[in-house]
Amino acid sequence: MSATLIAVVVALVLGHMAPTLASSVRHFGWYRDWLRWLDSRFPEGSFWRGRWGLAIALVPPLLLVSLFQLALHDALFGLASLIFGVAVLFYAWGPRDLDLDVEAVANAPDPVARRAAAQRLWPEGGMPAVLDGGSLVEAVFRNAQHRWFGVLFWFLLLGPAGALLYRLVAQSAEGEASTALPGETNEGARYFFAILDWPVAQLMTLALALVGNFDTVLGAWRDAGGASFDVRRPFLGAVARASVTCELADEAADYADDNLGADAGEAGLAPPPIPAPVLTGEVPELRDAMSLVWRSLLVWLAVLALFVIAGWVA
């Protein structure tokens, strides 16, 4: 089995089974301090304060990780490289456990607690959390993209350096480190982040089409501009909403068939409401959103395993 697949599975399981360890390790204060130090050294009008000034901050840590990656490639029959890959991927994953954050929203005892829990699904310093089902679905998929799939995609493409690249750019665009960047540099970081996210969103949409209703996903993708090369088009949110709505409609139809019979719809009888015990918390969309996210991740891992079997991934 490929070292790449092993690293992905180990990092995923470790992050899910040891959230305390993950929260204690995944800190990027050093990167924020590094950005502040750079900002204090470059005057107005310098390259640092331009659209692509973030490159100055990214090159040193990424170069260091790349050198380690190359140096450990054949060490100890590849074991050292595997351990290093797991460590970097584990560090770049998250930084918080998505399952726990979503569960906190679903199980919140009152609207105030639910809003406070939902705020963890919105970028730091951004707009306040919105509690309607559609917005929460978009938030779940946005976090899945930024916490899981984006890191995974760039790790598969570029190795440990790719995973760290994605996480540092995410921190620069909307994380705690973004406050240390000048305005123009931060705008460039946001655009670079959108570039990194675009292929990830496309592949997540493809996975959703495979695990959900293909026609619904394809229609939502087209209507939201997914076929465009505009990297700032937020089509994944529209696709996620449509997928979850379709899932809930199918569940309601199945429940009606089980309780009224297959001929209930033909008789003009309205389907009964799904009872509360069937739902997760008071926001049923959250349950289906997380189910689709996990199924999409399994599709990614299955495709990776097929690539390994075919010998396309080392």
Rank of each mutant, 00 (worst) to 15 (best):
V299E: 06
N143G: 08
Y255S: 09
V231K: 07
R120N: 03
M127H: 12
A220Q: 13
Y166L: 05
L208Y: 15
V308Q: 02
L304H: 06
V88L: 05
L63T: 10
R190P: 10
R190A: 13
H16V: 05
R222P: 08
P284M: 11
L301S: 06
L292M: 13
R114D: 05
P284T: 10
R41E: 06
P277C: 14
P273A: 14
D197Q: 11
L35W: 09
S2V: 06
H73W: 12
L158M: 11
A118F: 00
A104P: 00
L67G: 02
Y31A: 03
P109E: 06
D230H: 11
L301T: 06
M127Y: 11
P271I: 13
L206H: 10
Q171P: 00
A92H: 01
V65F: 00
W300P: 09
L168R: 02
W122K: 14
V59F: 08
L306K: 04
L156G: 01
A173F: 02
V88P: 01
L208D: 13
P95H: 01
L292R: 08
W294V: 05
L12E: 04
A220P: 14
S40D: 14
D97G: 11
E124A: 15
S291P: 15
W37H: 07
D230R: 15
E266C: 05
R51W: 15
R190K: 15
G311W: 15
W48V: 02
D254Y: 15
L157G: 06
F307G: 07
V303A: 15
A117M: 03
L157R: 10
G85L: 00
A289W: 06
G29A: 03
W221S: 15
V239M: 07
E251S: 08
V140T: 02
G188R: 10
P284C: 14
A249Y: 07
T4F: 08
F47I: 11
